[in-house]
Design a binder for these strands. Structure first.
Lengths: 151, 151
DNA sequence: TTAAAGAGTACTAAAAAAGTACTATATAAT
DNA sequence: ATTATATAGTACTTTTTTAGTACTCTTTAA
C-alpha cells in the first residue's frame, strides 16, 4: 500500500499543477482503479500532501514539490510511526517482558538512524534516474553525507 | 518473532560458554516455552549463530561474541533479505507495473543505507545500557559516524 | 535403559492487509 | 436546475501472513 502511495505521488508529481483523476493514475501506474481510489482518498484524509477536487474534471494534485516530500513522510503517513520493534518509543507498555527487557532505549537509536536515512530521501530522489544527480542538487550537507555512505 | 529471536540471543550472550535450555530462556525472557523452542530451533536451522546440544543438560550456546553479531544478521536470518518495497533488487519480476516503474534502482540505495545502519549495530550495543559506550569500544570509524548522526 | 532435551513437521487460530462495493457529497458543464 | 463526473466515507469480504500449538522422531548424559 505504501509502495502504491509512493507510485501515485510520483505520477502526480510528474504532472504537477494539474488535477489528475484516479483513472488516469490507475492507467499510468498499472494499479487497479479501486486500489488507486482507496489510496488517494486515504492520503487526502491523512495528510495535506494532496488536495482533491470533486466533480467533472476533478482529480488530485500535490501541494508540494517532489523535492519537498521525504520518503519518511509517506511511510509514516501510511503505516504510522516507524518502529522496528514493539517496545520502541511510546510503546513500552506493549513489551511483554518489560522489566526483563534490557534492550531499553537502544532500539530507539537504531530507529532514529533509519528514520534519518528515510528522511534524507525525497520523491525527487526516487524519480531521478541519474544516481548521482542529487550530489549537485540543493540538498543539505546532512544528505550529502548519506551519499558517501552509499559506496 | 525477530524481536523474540534477539531477546533469546541476548540472554544466551549473557550466559555465554554455557548451554542454556529453552525453559530457562523462557523463564528469563517471559516468552512462552513453545515459542522459545520454535525460535531457537529455527535459528539453529537457519544459521550457525547458535549450536544446540540434545539430551540431559543440553541446550543452546552462541558461537560468536555479542559484539560480533550484527542486528542485520538476525533480522535477515528471520525475515529474509531486507527490502522495503516489492521491486528491490532481485524482486523486479514481482513489480506489477514493471515498465512503468520509474523508481528503478533508487530504492536499492535507500535499502542499502538502512542495511548499513543495522549492520553497524551489534547485540552488544543493544545490551549496553550506557548509550555512549560504543564510542570508546573497538568499533570501526564507519560506526562512529553513525553515532554522530544520532543527535 | 531411561529421562531430558532439541529437531522436524504439520496443523490451527488469530491478526493484518488487501481488495471490493455501496452510498453520500461536491463540482463543472449544459 | 439538471446531469454527468469525480471524490469521500464507510462497511464488508477475502486473502495472506504471522503466531501459536501439538505431536513424533532423534540425540545424549546419567
Amino acid at each position: 500500500m505504501t509502495d502504491y502511495a509512493i507510485v501515485c505521488i510520483c505520477i502526480l508529481s510528474s504532472k504537477a499543477n494539474k488535477f489528475v483523476n484516479a483513472q488516469e493514475i490507475s492507467i499510468e501506474s498499472g494499479i487497479s482503479l479501486s486500489t488507486v481510489q482507496k489510496i488517494l482518498k486515504l492520503i487526502v484524509s491523512k495528510s495535506d500532501l494532496i488536495i482533491a477536487l470533486r466533480g467533472a474534471n476533478g482529480g488530485y494534485k500535490l501541494t508540494k514539490k517532489a523535492s519537498e516530500i521525504s520518503i519518511i513522510d509517506i511511510i509514516e503517513m501510511m503505516d504510522g510511526p516507524l518502529s522496528i520493534t514493539a517496545c520502541v518509543d511510546g510503546n513500552h507498555e506493549k513489551c511483554g517482558s518489560r522489566k526483563k527487557c534490557f534492550l531499553e532505549g537502544n532500539w530507539n537509536k537504531i530507529n532514529l538512524m533509519i528514520r534519518n536515512t528515510l528522511h534524507s530521501y525525497s520523491i525527487a530522489d526516487l524519480m531521478c534516474s541519474d544516481p548521482m544527480s542529487f550530489l549537485y542538487n540543493n540538498k543539505s550537507s546532512e544528505d550529502e553525507f548519506n551519499i558517501m555512505e552509499l559506496r
